[in-house]
Design a protein around this nucleic acid. Structure first.
Lengths: 204, 204
DNA sequence: CGTCGATCTGACCAGATGGTCAAGAATGAG
DNA sequence: CTCATTCTTGACCATCTGGTCAGATCGACG
């Protein structure tokens, strides 16, 4: 079994990365149960026993992918600046989150699968880290609203609405493209639409 | 094999319904691959061979569930009245769609699973029936906007945003409750929030 | 070149899963 | 009550899947 602490050799770095990449591709579109180690191995260009040489189990691969995903996902919310202009801060947050969906659709779908399944791995984090960050940011937004710098709206639902809308363009990409038809750039149009929507909602 | 055309006997009606109900429960929270016929049988209070007496395969059960789901899902959009007051019509649509999410969360999740997986069964319908209905309704909304009875906004993205937001409260229920904490009624709050949001967005 | 640890693989195993089948049990029309 | 039809099931099968293992191969380094 290779050292768990750090990647020692170049081969380890390359193969672990290949496995994680193939697994992300597979898990994000088929869900945990819909993926076999053989398929991951094939995607990574390795044999099944070789995959299990780098990770002790299918479960461990999945866990490695989920690990740190929440951090990536919440970074844009964390980056909201309490000292910035309220409306700009929120619109910038929306833009950053949408960009995340555009750049990391597989991660977005992995997350969606996990929540849909009852979040067997994320459950503790949801009620802890996630709820805490949202409470903090909701308080910030509520403060802005109390000062009259933003129009009033439920801050928790405001934040969740941003998640829902930005995730949608990644998770339901297929449906979005089916509805829009060819010749559209869903993410670009979504950026304009969301900017307009939140601007009108929140302008005092 | 029982007659495929119609439910003949009371036993057939009861057992087919029990199977579909157990299957919906299972598929909606675990996805197609995450469900075994044994589990469906257990949920329905039948033996595995007995389940396969009513449906020829696991696939057939899944198909039966998906069949007609899109109709249920699009009914509220279809019900939009071209002769009504534009803003009222859209707000009523939002409310109806949210209510659908609240009353049929399992169906919502089943749909989400299907799209996430690449819609192996719904794909043809998405590009056909769905796109056609949306195009029709988008034109209606665009007409209202052109008459100045609604503020301008991309009609396709408007409709999709309503889907995204209402689905979110069903599909990500776990996350929503984790964020809000106890003592909240997510759907009631969402109703108020969404009404406010779309009212501000669309009021001319 | 020789050695030793890192990397890789074919063969294999136990358990789970979708599905079949022949025969038994229940049902209901006459 | 009779008997054909409907319903139910235990036993079974082929296949797939996660995971193991002994040993083969590779590659860096003395």
């Amino acid at each position: 079994m290779p050292d768990l602490d750090a990647q020692r050799t170049r081969i380890q770095t390359r193969n672990r990365q290949a496995i994680l990449d193939a697994a992300l591709e597979a898990f994000s579109s088929n869900g945990y149960a819909g993926v076999t180690i053989d398929r991951i191995a094939e995607g990574a260009g390795l044999s099944k026993p070789n995959v299990l040489y780098y990770f002790p189990s299918k479960e461990a691969i999945h866990h490695a992918l989920l690990d740190g995903l929440l951090d990536l996902w919440l970074a844009p919310l964390r980056d909201m600046d309490p000292d910035g202009q309220p409306l700009d801060e929120i619109l910038a947050y929306v833009a950053r989150k949408l960009d995340l969906s555009r750049r990391y659709p597989r991660e977005s779908r992995l997350f969606a699968h996990e929540i849909l399944q009852g979040a067997p791995h994320l459950a503790p984090v949801l009620g802890g880290q996630l709820a805490a960050l949202v409470a903090d940011r909701a308080a910030l937004v509520a403060g802005w609203m109390a000062q009259g710098r933003l129009a009033a709206a439920d801050p928790h639902h405001l934040i969740m609405s941003i998640w829902a809308l930005t995730q949608h363009y990644a998770d339901f990409d297929l449906q979005v493209r089916a509805v829009l038809g060819p010749g559209h750039d869903p993410f670009a149009e979504a950026g304009a639409f969301l900017d307009r929507m939140y601007r009108r909602l929140l302008t005092p």
